[in-house]
Nucleic acid binder design. Structure first.
Length: 288
DNA sequence: CGCATTTCCTGGTAGC
DNA sequence: TGCTACCAGGAAATGC
């Protein structure tokens, strides 16, 4: 499942290849719909740069004659999306092919078996049709993002911290794997109301997010099943996961068994010993 | 507005 | 072997 480290890995590989390239044509092999809205507008435009916000890839498209960008290509890989150089043999689940001017490789394929991904063109910076992108929280690896800002964001909600992290509102780019990993590292119970995580724990949580996202990025991400880099490589971080996919195994901190539960319809693995739920007393949450 | 629930989609796998 | 049932889940849509 591509989250921040996986999408950033892909961005870094795409950037030197796609920057400045002219999109000569667009082929849509999936049924037209909101997930591919406006895609035909990409034809005739050059790619100014390859950027990332959260789990979204954002490619501003230069206007006719190289004028400043008017459109933006927005790509979300969903759960099973893969971007790679076009191959002669069309993949069974090929959804979009961009035809590029210039030297080989002259095509970019978007393959997406489960169809949770998006590949759309919007007017630059206008994300009305993409509410999550419109409301996206700060980049966790940005040093301007402080524990105080994170705490202020978390204070806006009483839903379970795990669910709130997945909403992309308090911080961008965190999905199911790294949410579980960071909560375990910071010793925060997944069901803790977001606003009830006290400042010290918020700081620990931000540190944990940065550690795990940074380490995974160095490993080119986590491959469970479908995720591949642009060049078909698997990410190497799976063996470093402490909790995700390890329900029933020993907690690497206390040795007790990790447990699995469902939080907001999402499978969640945690250590009941190391991640304690704060108690509610007189309407206030207290630690321990 | 906040929050909960439902929906989309296919490959893999458990069970018979 | 072949069938059915179910599960994985990011974000949008829908319903209070």
């Amino acid at each position: 499942m591509p989250e921040l480290p996986e999408v950033e890995t892909i961005r870094r590989q795409l950037a030197p290849w796609l920057t400045g390239r002219l999109i000569e044509g667009v082929e849509l092999l999936a049924p037209m719909g909101p997930k591919y809205a406006g895609l035909e507008r990409a034809a005739g435009h050059a790619i100014e740069s390859v950027n990332r916000r959260g789990k979204y890839l954002l490619l501003p498209l230069l206007g006719e004659g190289g004028s400043s960008p008017d459109y933006e290509l927005v790509v979300h890989l969903g759960m099973t999306g893969v971007l790679r150089p076009a191959e002669a043999e069309r993949h069974k689940h090929l959804r979009v092919r961009l035809e590029l001017a210039g030297p080989d490789p002259t095509g970019l394929d978007f393959i997406d078996p489960r169809r949770f991904g998006r590949f759309t063109v919007v007017a630059k910076g206008e994300y009305e049709s993409l509410p999550t992108l419109k409301e996206l929280g700060p980049e966790p690896l940005d040093h301007a993002f402080t524990p105080e800002l994170f705490a202020a964001n978390l204070a806006r909600s009483r839903v379970a911290i795990k669910s709130y992290l997945l909403s992309q509102r308090p911080v961008a780019g965190v999905g199911n794997i790294y949410a579980d990993e960071a909560l375990w590292r910071a010793g925060v119970h997944p069901l803790t109301p977001a606003a009830a995580v006290e400042l010290g724990r918020v700081a620990a949580l931000l540190g944990a997010l940065r550690d795990v996202l940074g380490a995974s990025l160095e490993a080119q991400g986590t491959t469970l099943n479908d995720y591949r880099t642009v060049y078909g490589e698997s990410g190497d971080y799976m063996g470093s996961l402490d909790v995700y996919g390890r329900a029933g195994a020993e907690c690497r901190r206390c040795g007790g068994p990790l447990e699995r539960m469902v939080v907001g319809q999402r499978g969640t693995t945690y250590c009941p010993e190391c991640q304690r739920l704060p108690r509610l007393r007189d309407g206030e949450w207290e630690d321990e």
